[in-house]
């Protein structure tokens, strides 16, 4: 009777850990999606910067703000885009760090789950013997 209750305990622990793991995995996939978005934006911004750098100084540059095109200074536009690229790069770095962190957590969780499973198995084996 005692062994079966211990087993139930372990079963519950396993479930909790599995839930945690799935949560972490969900976070990781979310992180991946966000990263993908940022990478695309970074690529676009770099393209824009390249084109802006290629423009001659007297070219007219506009920015679409809401429904209207607002004329912008070329230098200002370049500075803006550059700042944006910096921001996105920093964000990507941050995401990388959190991703690594989460992967570590995921691995430790996996290990814990494996241990619990082993314990359950050994318990069952002991019960079968007895």
């Amino acid at each position: 009777m005692g062994s079966s209750s211990a087993q139930r305990e372990l079963q519950r622990e396993l479930e909790a850990k599995a839930n945690d793991l799935s949560k972490i995995q969900k976070d990781i996939s979310k992180n991946h999606q966000v990263r993908k978005k940022y990478t695309i934006q970074l690529g676009e911004n770099e393209l824009v910067l390249k084109e802006l750098d290629l423009l001659s100084e007297d070219a007219n540059v506009f920015k679409l703000i809401g429904p209207v095109l607002v004329k912008q200074d070329l230098a200002e536009a370049r500075a803006n885009v550059r700042k944006r690229i910096e921001y996105i790069s920093a964000e990507l770095k941050r995401l990388d760090a959190t991703l690594q962190d989460m992967e570590e957590k995921q691995n430790s969780k996996k290990e814990a789950i494996f241990k619990v499973q082993q314990r359950i198995q050994s318990l069952q084996a002991g019960k079968a013997k007895a």
Partner: peptide
């Protein structure tokens, strides 16, 4: 009026536009 991306537009001639599009 060429959309460069990220809401930025630039006034360009046909030739310049073709260059941008080729890139």
């Amino acid at each position: 009026m060429v959309l460069l991306g990220e809401g930025y537009y630039a006034e360009r001639t046909s030739k310049q536009t073709v260059d941008i599009l080729n890139r």
